[in-house]
Simulated assay, not measured.
Amino acid sequence: MNKHQQQAPDLPEHKAPWWMDGNGLKEPHFLSKGLHAFWRRLWHWLLIPLQQLDPLECSEAMLNLIAWDRGIQRFSNEPVALYRKRVKYAFANARDAGESAGFKRIFERLGIGWVEVHERQPDQPWDVITIELADMELAGNQQLLNVLIQHYGRTCRRYRFQVVYPQPLRLHAARFSGSYQNFGAKLG
């Protein structure tokens, strides 16, 4: 049962009261079962439009229509799963556009790993925003990053990518002790 079926009212299991059931006639019982099966099938058919409103579950034709409505265009060789996420989170991404914390949330929603956004750094022009990414994220998502900056970035700013190579750090704690003595000596 998907989430749309959980939101829709349930079709009750109903036994029709038949006055002839006590006489051993089973036709009304079979008729009741058949009608219930028909209404259950019709109930599923009526839920199909609800399923088409969710960008993560709808058909691709409907996805393209929802994307057009939300102002999202698919870039070349974009995986369908990523396209579905971009369409689903279009409103939230538009709301978060234009601020550093919002930009981080946009990247997080779309599955891009660690990101840091730096604005107005010393020794940099005021309109340069530096986006720090891991090397693998930049290499694997270059088109996506360009589309995101073009769509959600500030219009009067320049964006610069800075590649960071994350290295695991191991730190071991151990007890270290020793004793120290000072000796003085005089000549002569």
Rank of each mutant, 00 (worst) to 15 (best):
Q52Y: 12
W39H: 09
R154W: 13
V87H: 07
V164W: 05
R154G: 05
A81G: 08
G113R: 11
N77W: 00
P166Y: 06
G22H: 01
I149F: 02
P125N: 00
A90S: 11
L11Y: 06
T130G: 02
E60H: 07
I149H: 02
F183M: 04
F75V: 08
A37L: 14
H36Q: 11
D96W: 14
L148Y: 08
W45G: 07
L110R: 01
L42I: 11
A67G: 14
V163T: 14
E60R: 04
Q143K: 10
R170F: 15
P28W: 04
E108H: 15
F38K: 10
W114T: 11
L50Q: 04
H151F: 12
F103K: 08
G71L: 10
S179Y: 12
Q5K: 09
E13P: 06
I48P: 04
L82M: 14
F107E: 01
G24Q: 03
Q7P: 03
F38S: 14
L148W: 10
P122Q: 11
P28L: 01
V80P: 15
L110K: 00
S177Y: 01
W19M: 02
V80E: 15
D123A: 06
E57I: 09
H29M: 03
R105L: 15
E99D: 10
D123C: 13
N64I: 03
K3S: 13
Q150Y: 12
Q5F: 05
K33Q: 13
R158M: 15
Q6V: 12
W114S: 07
V80W: 08
L169S: 11
N146V: 08
Q6F: 02
N77T: 03
L82Y: 04
M1K: 00
I112W: 14
G34A: 13
L145I: 07
P17C: 11
S100R: 12
D135K: 05
G71I: 12
H36F: 08
Y152K: 10
A61L: 06
S179V: 09
R40T: 08
D54V: 06
I66R: 04
I72H: 01
M136G: 01
A92F: 02
G24K: 05
L63W: 08
A173H: 00
R154L: 13
K3Q: 03
G140N: 13
E78I: 09
V87N: 00
P166M: 03
W45D: 10
L25V: 06
L82A: 08
K104T: 07
D54L: 07
A97G: 08
E137S: 11
V115N: 10
R74G: 02
V117P: 04
K88I: 00
G111H: 14
G98H: 04
L11P: 02
D54W: 09
K15Q: 13
G188C: 02
F30Q: 10
S59N: 13
Y152V: 02
L145S: 06
A97N: 07
F183D: 02
R109N: 09
G184C: 01
M1Q: 01
